[in-house]
């Protein structure tokens, strides 16, 4: 007993550094949730209260299944890191507004248990859980997952998403597309609300512009060349604002766990995403393709990372630069001396 009190009096010893930043995993996750709130609110306003129910059910499904799995497997419960909330939010915002509730609930359980926990939990999954679940639901429940009719909304006329309309040769209002006055999934419709959230993430340095910037840029270039519409600003704007590209670029492609760590890798990843989305939209049967592009690029991530390890400080090109600076300096000195 005496010895323990003696030990308690001693100071802690640990290896440096002895300070830690105030940013935690939980805070980062909450920031992502906060950034999705404008799009979520617009979804509820635009599609009606059922959208709220879908979102709450999906988030609950994710959180409860994470808790249950961890309790069952006798693992430490990590629900408080809020990563399951983020997964639930992303999945919910990817759901059509009139989806029968069991579908997103099943999706949430699949995302957390199969895609995330079976691979070892947070940080270990190689695919974005929400997107993998969405793809699973798309294949399993093709009809309800692509039914964008809006029984709840007053001015429901069109049931086709703008991109499907565009692909079929129709036309869409760009203003409606930008504001979000269109059919689609709960969270993807309002470009302005999504950009608001994206600006928040960028300002708080939760994400960098590298992946979304490169994604949108390379997608636009791809469409310019291969879409057959050439330099048509209206068509390009519709393509960029529609089909969940903005949502995907800023909220799903930037998922930490499944994207590359290296700065150069993030640029490459963005280009691959843009090109794949372009291929799926131009040559594929469906008018969209963001989810599949991201899921496929997730698989390429380890390879991209391996090929884009940055040059260490003072090595490679930095060493050459230094050598050049030194020789230049010598030449200057020599010239000075000769000048004298």
């Amino acid at each position: 007993m005496e010895q323990t009190t003696e030990i308690k009096k001693l100071a802690h010893v640990s290896s440096s550094p002895h300070f830690r930043t105030s940013v935690t995993t939980q805070k980062l996750m909450l920031d992502v949730v906060i950034a999705m709130i404008p799009a979520f609110l617009w979804g509820v306003w635009h599609f009606g209260p059922y959208a709220l129910l879908v979102t709450v059910a999906t988030v609950l499904a994710c959180v409860v299944s994470e808790y249950a799995y961890e309790r069952l497997m006798k693992l430490p419960v990590t629900v408080s890191d809020c990563s399951a909330v983020v997964t639930g939010m992303i999945l919910a915002l990817n759901m059509p507004p009139e989806i029968p509730l069991f579908i997103p609930i099943l999706g949430g359980v699949f995302a957390i248990v199969v895609v995330k926990q079976l691979y070892g939990g947070l940080g270990q999954n190689f695919m974005n859980p929400a997107l993998a679940a969405r793809c699973f639901l798309m294949i399993s429940f093709a009809k309800p997952m692509t039914d964008f009719s809006m029984r709840g909304a007053v001015d429901a006329v069109s049931t086709a998403t703008p991109l499907a309309e565009l692909k079929a040769g129709g036309s869409v209002s760009l203003t409606d597309l930008f504001i979000g006055n269109i059919p689609g999934t709960i969270g993807e419709v309002s470009t302005i609300a999504l950009l608001l959230g994206a600006a928040y993430l960028l300002a708080k340095k939760v994400i960098s512009i590298r992946i979304p910037g490169m994604y949108i840029l390379s997608f636009a270039v791809f469409m310019l060349i291969f879409s057959g519409h050439g330099l048509d600003p209206y068509y390009l704007a519709c393509q960029v604002c529609g089909g969940g590209l903005i949502f995907g670029a800023f909220f799903m492609a930037t998922d930490y766990v499944t994207g590359p760590l290296t700065p150069a890798g993030q640029l490459v990843y963005g280009v691959i995403l843009g090109v794949l989305t372009g291929i799926f939209r131009v040559f594929g049967a469906s008018a969209e393709g963001v989810s599949y592009a991201i899921i496929l690029s997730n698989i390429l991530c380890p390879l991209i990372e391996k090929c884009t390890v940055p040059t260490a400080f003072g090595k490679g090109r930095y060493a050459e630069l230094t050598k050049k600076l030194l020789t230049d300096n010598k030449d200057v000195k020599k010239a000075e001396q000769e000048g004298r």
Binding site: H12, S14, H18, F19, R20, T24, T25, L28, T78, D81, S83, G121, L122, G123, Q124, Y256, V257, G259, L261, T262, Q266
Partner: peptide, 15 residues
Amino acid sequence: DEVAENPTTPCIRCG
């Protein structure tokens, strides 16, 4: 002691 007060959690690869 910030080190002892901040237990380690899994890497989320935030970069």
